[in-house]
Design a protein around this nucleic acid. Structure first.
Lengths: 112, 112
DNA sequence: CGGAATCCGCACTGATACTG
DNA sequence: CAGTATCAGTGCGGATTCCG
């Protein structure tokens, strides 16, 4: 249970699912869309999500290779709750940044 | 933005917020409730959540010391979306476990 | 009781090189 | 293009100790 929550709460997994909700994407498209992710981590993340039945991997036997990633039905149901989390973050990020500033200021005052 | 999402999507943070929604808890109560968390990680997690203005830390000047942790108003609004995530996990964990089994079986077949 | 501080291992991650 | 394989480093997190 917590094992599942850990996987889902992974930073890269959230982003991949958020991106795939809009449409099917190829490997390179995902890599370009997610700033800062390495090829290795993208591969690892996609494999885990595929293993959990959240995304579907389609390989086209062409040259050059083409692999599409899409949300499964299960993945779509997850996306709804993830989106709520993203929306909350967008809505409240100003408050959080302000709270951090207050906290850090109080902390630095106590040094004197 | 992603920095905030990372903090919130942290495995320990999710659990702490989920627990504090029911009622205010003391440090030791949290540690007992969250199986597998070390004292260090609980302290770190609580500090970060406090810094972000999601929980409130109340110190009572008594002996032995007593420290209460409670959700702030901002933390309460976050809890709603987190709860959706937890509920989703509970609802679908059977499907995920089944998907993993299928995936692993297919993988082991391909070794022959 | 509720921490802070220190040490330390290793798992995660990135970088690189290679392949079908 | 979409990976796999290998290796190196580093930072997270556990264990321990000490303190108000």
């Amino acid at each position: 249970m917590r094992q599942i929550l850990d996987r889902i709460a992974d930073k890269w997994s959230l982003l991949v699912i958020a991106l795939l909700e809009k449409r099917t994407l190829r490997f390179t498209e995902l890599r370009k869309s997610i700033d800062g992710i390495s090829q290795r981590m993208l591969t690892t993340t996609l494999r885990q999500l595929e293993r959990d039945g959240l995304i579907e991997r389609t390989v086209y036997p062409v040259v050059p290779p083409r692999v599409d990633y899409a949300l499964t039905e299960l993945g779509c149901t997850l996306h709804d709750t993830i989106k709520a989390l993203v929306v909350w973050t967008e809505t409240n990020q100003a408050k959080i940044i302000a709270a951090r500033r207050r906290y850090d200021e109080r902390a630095s005052e106590k040094l004197w």
